[in-house]
Amino acid sequence: MIELRQAGYSYGRGATLSDLDLTLAPGSFHFLTGPSGAGKTTLLKLLYGELKPSSGAALLFGQDSRKVDRDGLARIRRKVGVVHQDCRFLDHLSVVDNVALPLQVTGRDPSAHATDLAQLLSWVGLSARAEARPPELSGGERQRAALARAVIMDPDVLLADEPTGNVDAEMSQRLLTLLTELNRMGKAVVVATHDMGLIRAAKPLVQARILRLAGGNLQAAGAEL
């Protein structure tokens, strides 16, 4: 579905990432680890086309991200759910409206998906907070709302950037459970995290591969958890 081929990226002063090879197959689960500043977020951005490789190629559903036009990129993003580290909500909209945002921007009638929305909010445990505004949510609630928004379009790929960065251990476990449930539904999942506890906690839940980013390269790729 998504493939990096010798992909590299530079912000201008030397290569940030180089020679990355990665394939996200349906039903795969990857943890992306590495110290802060290693380029985990940059790599995720290459996977959903917010950044385009400086070298090599990123194939997003068979299309080279450097050659696809803007509308094509929008269509690709509807197949990739992303949980951003800072969640990126529209603060003037309620939680349910934020979750329904991908439906709205694609011209679908949110009311036709009201049941899906209700079930989704229930699944992430935010039914009672549906009408709240994002600034009123706790860190864990924000991450779960972001997760609900990421999966509302039933994407093939789910990318999560430090989803447990601002939540307690119990909430981390809850988010991990949600991610593994999605993986069992056949979605390819990539979780960028520097939380080794999260990776250890995932061991009984999912067959995952750990990718370590260091020095701009992916190391120990393919290592089983």
Partner: peptide
Amino acid sequence: VLRLVGARD
């Protein structure tokens, strides 16, 4: 945000 959730220009 709109672009990231799949909005066209």
